[in-house]
Simulated assay, not measured.
Amino acid sequence: MEEKRYSPSGTLALGIVTMFIPVIGIISGILAIIFANKSLKVTEDTEAIKALYLGGRVCAIIGLCYQGLMVIYIIFIFTIALSPLFY
């Protein structure tokens, strides 16, 4: 049975969405990494198509790191804002 290949441009688009859209970015980043990894394992296409998969995966990783830092920042801000209530 042949494994499913995902669209290289779709994977790249999901990776780019990860960097710019806050909540949806976490979901699309995870999907982009999964799609890129699965497709790179089964594809025997040209280097240009593999580069699109790799670009999507790199954008997704960078976007997920950014999203994680933003979540930590928001938790920090809420902690600072709510701290006077507990004195």
Rank of each mutant, 00 (worst) to 15 (best):
D45F: 01
Y53K: 02
A32G: 01
G25H: 03
G68S: 08
I75M: 15
V17R: 14
I77L: 15
E3M: 03
G55F: 03
P84G: 01
I27G: 00
K4R: 13
L85E: 08
I26W: 13
P8W: 02
S9N: 10
L69N: 08
I33M: 10
L40C: 02
I80A: 09
L52P: 01
L12M: 05
M1N: 06
L31Q: 07
I34A: 03
V42Y: 15
G29C: 01
K50D: 14
R5W: 02
Y6W: 06
K50V: 03
Y66K: 14
G63E: 07
K38H: 14
E47G: 08
L12T: 00
V58D: 15
L85C: 04
I77R: 11
C59W: 14
A81L: 14
I77E: 07
L54D: 10
F86H: 07
P8E: 08
A36K: 00
V42S: 15
I77V: 13
C59L: 10
G25E: 09
I61S: 06
I74C: 08
S83L: 10
I80C: 07
L69I: 14
Q67S: 09
N37I: 11
I16N: 07
A13L: 13
G10T: 06
I24N: 01
I80W: 09
L69A: 08
A51E: 15
T18S: 07
E3K: 04
P22I: 04
Q67T: 03
F78H: 12
I27L: 13
G25S: 03
I77G: 00
S28T: 15
T79L: 15
R57A: 06
V42M: 03
P84K: 03
K4C: 00
I34Y: 15
L12K: 09
S83F: 09
L54M: 09
L14S: 04
I75F: 12
I27V: 11
I27S: 04
K4H: 08
T43M: 10
E47D: 15
P22A: 06
Y73H: 06
S7K: 00
